[in-house]
């Protein structure tokens, strides 16, 4: 019976009314994205916003510049959002020398990788435009690794080659206007057995960066930036099957490269079984990692014998 943990218990469909909203998230630093011989007033974000507003007459819209992973996470999970356009730099690993390494990234304006947030596209997002160089190759790489999920009805706008931001955004908007967004989307819901883990994060020494909590390669939650002295609490649900302690290993990730030392905050994880999670660290206690850290589950119990909670999830 335990081997069946995490299997789908019940499938049913709900019809969720969705009121259309189109969101433009740009994540470009205007100082670093100004063409030569332009005045300091020239701002790529203003240019992109103008293109967007001109094309989206009479449409409920939202524009966020210098967006980060927290704002992307919120937009992706906002049920009112029907179409989402993300504009940023990206890079792909397809022509690299080895398949042991990957540089496939979608980078925000602080050069932090937000690609894992695009692994699962909720069904209410009927149109996703990834306006960035070679975004098609990046998504294809995720697909080849079976790490990309989207509804069959979600239309993707991707770029095959290196592109100019404004031209690419115009193409994405043109394509968006050609498709008809539905007033209603059918959200598929399933009941799943999950292991719930409570967490507390405290910014002790300085402000703590926005982080995502990842288990088994899945982004379970994204936390906003935390000011020094503040605390965040919450719960994450890990979908089974849970067969070993490794299945409950937790990755805390800012998406930053190895050159950006960041305060991730101090995490404490607990569950109903009084288990503890210990930070993966050097013998002297210094945590491994710069933009990310790993927490290992420490318990003497057999995790596959823990009872699980039932949770209904709709995509």
């Amino acid at each position: 019976m335990l081997k069946t943990l995490g299997k789908m218990m019940l499938i049913f469909a709900l019809v969720t009314p969705v009121w259309g909203k189109v969101v433009l998230l740009t994540s470009l630093n205007p100082e670093l994205n100004r063409p030569p011989l332009r005045s300091k007033k020239w701002n790529i974000n203003e240019k992109l916003e103008k293109i967007f507003r001109d094309q989206m007459d009479n449409q409920e819209i939202e524009v966020i510049h210098m967006a980060n992973q927290w704002q992307l996470y919120q937009a992706l999970n906002d049920k009112d959002v029907q179409a989402l356009l993300w504009v940023s730099h990206s890079s792909n690993t397809s022509d690299r020398t080895s398949d042991a390494l990957s540089t496939a990234s979608v980078l925000d304006h602080q050069f932090r990788d937000v690609l894992p947030l695009f692994q699962t596209i909720p069904s209410h997002i009927q149109y996703l435009g990834l306006v960035g160089c070679r975004s098609e190759l990046i998504i294809n790489e995720l697909k080849s690794k079976n790490k990309f999920q989207s509804s069959a009805e979600t239309k993707l706008f991707l770029e095959e080659k290196k592109v100019d931001a404004r031209k690419s955004l115009k193409r994405a908007l043109k394509e968006l206007k050609q498709i008809k967004l539905k007033d209603e989307v059918e959200a598929k819901c399933i009941e799943q057995e999950v292991a719930q883990i409570d967490f507390t994060r405290t910014a002790i020494e300085s402000d703590a960066a926005s982080v995502r909590i990842v288990v088994g390669g899945q982004v379970l939650k994204v936390l906003p930036k935390l000011l020094k002295g503040e605390t965040q609490t919450g719960t994450i649900s890990v979908v089974g099957p849970i067969q070993s302690k490794g299945d409950l290993k937790i990755l805390i990730d800012t998406g930053a490269s190895s050159h950006s030392e960041l305060d991730l905050g101090k995490f404490t994880f607990t569950n109903d079984h009084e288990a503890e999670w210990k930070l993966f660290a050097k013998p002297d206690g210094t945590p491994f990692g710069i933009g990310s850290q790993v927490y290992h589950l420490k318990t003497k119990e057999q995790v596959n014998e823990w009872p699980f909670n039932i949770e209904t999830r709709c995509n």
């Binding site: 020398t97 080895s98 042991a100 390494l101 990957s102 540089t103 990234s105 980078l107 990788d113």
Partner: peptide, 21 residues
């Protein structure tokens, strides 16, 4: 002889290994 070109992408070691590798 093994070179990772400096790029703006985030370099990660892949968990997926090809049969050839």
């Amino acid at each position: 002889g093994f070179v990772v070109l400096g790029d703006e992408g985030r370099v990660q070691i892949n968990s997926e290994l090809s049969a050839d590798l």
